[in-house]
Design a binder for these strands. Sequence first.
DNA 1: AGAGTTTATGTTAGCGCTGAGATAATTTCG
DNA 2: CGAAATTATCTCAGCGCTAACATAAACTCT
Lengths: 333, 333
Amino acid sequence: MQREAPTLAHVARLAAVSENTVSRVIRNKGPIAEETRKRVIAAIDSLGYVPNRAAGSLASSSSLIIGVLLPSLSNIVFPEVLHGIHAALADTSYQAMIGVTDYDLLQEQKLLSSLLAWQPAAIVTTGFDHTDTSRRMLEQSGIRIAELMDIDDRPIDIAVGLSHRRAGRESARHLVGRGYRRIGYVGHDWSADRRAHFRYEGLRQGLQEAGLSLAAEFRFEGASSTMAGREALAQLLGGGHGVDAVVFSNDDMAVGGFMHCLGAGLAIPERLALFGFNGLDIGQALPRPLSTIRSNRFLIGRTAVEKLLEARERPTEPQIIDTGFEIVDGATA
Amino acid sequence: MQREAPTLAHVARLAAVSENTVSRVIRNKGPIAEETRKRVIAAIDSLGYVPNRAAGSLASSSSLIIGVLLPSLSNIVFPEVLHGIHAALADTSYQAMIGVTDYDLLQEQKLLSSLLAWQPAAIVTTGFDHTDTSRRMLEQSGIRIAELMDIDDRPIDIAVGLSHRRAGRESARHLVGRGYRRIGYVGHDWSADRRAHFRYEGLRQGLQEAGLSLAAEFRFEGASSTMAGREALAQLLGGGHGVDAVVFSNDDMAVGGFMHCLGAGLAIPERLALFGFNGLDIGQALPRPLSTIRSNRFLIGRTAVEKLLEARERPTEPQIIDTGFEIVDGATA
DNA sequence: AGAGTTTATGTTAGCGCTGAGATAATTTCG
DNA sequence: CGAAATTATCTCAGCGCTAACATAAACTCT
């Protein structure tokens, strides 16, 4: 029924040229007479020829694959990064091949190794934490590497993201500027989330620069979630530290905190101010939009891929691309 | 610096066997003497050999790639499906290759064609709507195909999901059972979301079976979002139809509706009952957990891949796998 | 006009692996 | 005990493409 898929040879015969010429037309490489190009394209169309990528990869020892390693898919942040990656890939012939590490560096290493088996054109991964073996594989592969989200360290090739330390510091400055003095922190387990830790440190630094320190803090044992934020804020307030504002490790946690306040009848921001991080939609859809910091995840993904595709060779010096952040001046702080 | 990556030939020489034997050890195919296997594995480990997938794919004209076509990444539902897909893939050598169609059937066709260029082991796509060309490519490829989310039509190979028509009907029955009689509908643009339309039809059918009909309806012009739900509910209520319950096209919209009620001081569910669809976390973190229907997205993704990997051949008759749904008996309806 | 240059195309040898069939060593059984 | 069956391995062609080089034709330029 389904006759064999047409190959270069079929196209070449139909267009009465050599295989190599067809290949060059397809890859837009080397000089081609306009008339020949037309004939080849007509042949391709009439046969419905689709190049076999495996053969191409093998022959050229490089592929049109972009390997993407994400720590998680259940945190909306990473699908948004992935969305940006796809936006940049949309009009190219590149395809994203995804691996999910579950925040596990050994898993990252394993996935990295199987991604490299496809000889991808580039690898996009997250953060600067890698096993020594992963780092060696990344370095020796020679291909372009982007490390996303964070820019507070030295990348292998390029880093695209924002300074979480600075973001934390700006949270402090914003709240202090608004007149809050007894500022608390509600976070989640940051053993797997180094960036949340950086923001926390930035927050403390910012407070210190204003002559203040954290009035109270509570860290939920486990991953961040709306539920976690809700429970954690209840815990923090139960401590009776008289805080007037709370910085959350991210928006998910902050939205949970908002829900707790609604349930407990605490006026926001009069009784308690709330401040998040990420700038998720859900925070902006609350009855009072959440005050937070927008982290531009989509932009991070898109910029990273754009930069990677700009040049096949790594720059001589590692590059850092700061996609920045903005204070979202909501109504909760 | 980076010496050539080792190939089968290197491993073979080191283990003093033929390349083919090494290949068979790796693929666990054909009889191998235990002692030989050990020697080969030792050689692989000592060289850090990683098979070149492009070469393997070319030689076997099939690859360890699972092509995944998703309509969107900005709707949390699809990242969750992708999460399930990755969960099922985690302990295999398969890799997911992703394409995002933006709900555009022509884009799906284009992506499908470039996925097939990798000779994937299977394709996972969404829904039953495809261009004729896409359908032909899927059918003729001969590989396993899963169509996700929906089971209200005849699949090419297997369908994994739930009956949205039935889900809509159950929403109606639930609300009627709770004593609501003036039931309204708030939806979004369903030209790209056939499943939302199916739920709507199921809802109407369910109401009809109870001798009722929709008291009012409002469809937001555009994609679903929390903001859209908030505005759309305001619009619906502005119409003065005296509805006592509203079914939303999904949880995002319903959460927006919840926010409107909070802002407008409408008691939930006393003044107005709210009912969603999907069972997202955010709905359950509201001060009153949202009454909704859980659609098991993760399970859909995982089950689909498990089924696809069970057999290389398509079943003689298309199969339908119902992952079901449950009424989440929250506090809003 | 002849040498050099540019443009357009062809020829050929693999890329690293797998599949099919061949071969060799071992076991089974009438 | 020899033929058949089984187990373990090898040999070799070729998957469909691209890189490198070779060639041919068409232009320059003095």
